[in-house]
Amino acid sequence: NMVHPNVICDGCNGPVVGTRYKCSVCPDYDLCSVCEGKGLHRGHTKLAFPSP
């Protein structure tokens, strides 16, 4: 899995490795796959980016 450079997960404050989930509503909100799997930020649609 690749690390998305200059992207920090807003759920756990860790690096985003593998798929990046970017909120389509909020201007700067990203989740890693673990936090997305936990259902964080469920109210907004997210775009999935498998690689940087």
Rank of each mutant, 00 (worst) to 15 (best):
residue 34 V to I: 15
residue 24 S to Y: 06
residue 33 S to D: 10
residue 23 C to K: 01
residue 23 C to G: 03
residue 45 T to Q: 12
residue 38 K to H: 05
residue 8 I to E: 10
residue 13 N to G: 04
residue 41 H to R: 01
residue 35 C to S: 01
residue 7 V to G: 08
residue 24 S to R: 11
residue 34 V to F: 07
residue 8 I to S: 14
residue 46 K to C: 13
residue 8 I to K: 15
residue 26 C to N: 02
residue 22 K to Y: 05
residue 44 H to L: 02
residue 51 S to A: 13
residue 29 Y to G: 01
residue 28 D to G: 11
residue 23 C to W: 00
residue 3 V to Y: 11
residue 21 Y to W: 08
residue 32 C to K: 02
residue 50 P to V: 07
residue 39 G to H: 08
residue 43 G to A: 15
residue 49 F to E: 14
residue 27 P to K: 15
residue 25 V to Y: 05
residue 44 H to R: 02
residue 30 D to P: 02
residue 6 N to P: 05
residue 30 D to I: 10
residue 23 C to E: 02
residue 11 G to H: 12
residue 36 E to P: 00
residue 38 K to L: 05
residue 43 G to Q: 15
residue 50 P to F: 09
residue 38 K to I: 06
residue 21 Y to H: 06
residue 49 F to K: 12
residue 38 K to Y: 05
residue 4 H to P: 12
residue 5 P to V: 08
residue 26 C to H: 03
residue 39 G to A: 06
residue 14 G to P: 00
residue 17 V to K: 14
residue 29 Y to A: 06
residue 27 P to A: 07
residue 50 P to R: 07
residue 52 P to R: 04
residue 20 R to K: 12
residue 48 A to S: 15
residue 22 K to F: 05
residue 38 K to G: 05
residue 1 N to H: 05
residue 19 T to V: 12
residue 51 S to C: 14
residue 9 C to Y: 00
residue 35 C to K: 02
residue 12 C to M: 00
residue 21 Y to F: 14
residue 31 L to T: 03
residue 40 L to M: 13
residue 23 C to F: 01
residue 3 V to M: 09
residue 31 L to G: 03
residue 27 P to E: 07
residue 18 G to L: 04
residue 10 D to S: 15
residue 49 F to D: 13
residue 16 V to W: 00
residue 13 N to Y: 08
residue 46 K to S: 09
residue 11 G to K: 10
residue 2 M to T: 06
residue 37 G to R: 09
residue 39 G to E: 12
residue 12 C to T: 01
residue 5 P to M: 08
residue 10 D to Y: 12
residue 34 V to G: 11
residue 21 Y to Q: 03
residue 52 P to F: 03
residue 41 H to V: 02
residue 8 I to Y: 14
residue 1 N to W: 00
residue 48 A to Y: 10
residue 18 G to E: 09
residue 19 T to H: 04
residue 7 V to W: 08
residue 39 G to I: 02
residue 20 R to E: 03
residue 24 S to K: 12
residue 27 P to Q: 14
residue 7 V to A: 07
residue 29 Y to L: 04
residue 29 Y to D: 01
residue 45 T to A: 12
residue 7 V to Q: 05
residue 15 P to S: 09
residue 9 C to M: 00
residue 11 G to N: 10
residue 44 H to V: 02
residue 52 P to G: 00
residue 26 C to I: 02
residue 31 L to V: 06
residue 18 G to T: 07
residue 6 N to E: 15
residue 11 G to T: 07
residue 24 S to I: 05
residue 35 C to M: 00
residue 10 D to P: 05
residue 9 C to V: 01
residue 30 D to M: 11
residue 20 R to L: 10
residue 23 C to Y: 00
residue 29 Y to M: 15
residue 3 V to R: 08
residue 46 K to H: 11
residue 24 S to P: 03
residue 41 H to E: 02
residue 39 G to C: 04
residue 44 H to P: 02
residue 31 L to Q: 06
residue 29 Y to C: 02
residue 9 C to T: 01
residue 50 P to L: 07
residue 30 D to R: 06
residue 42 R to G: 14
residue 2 M to S: 07
residue 8 I to D: 12
residue 39 G to W: 03
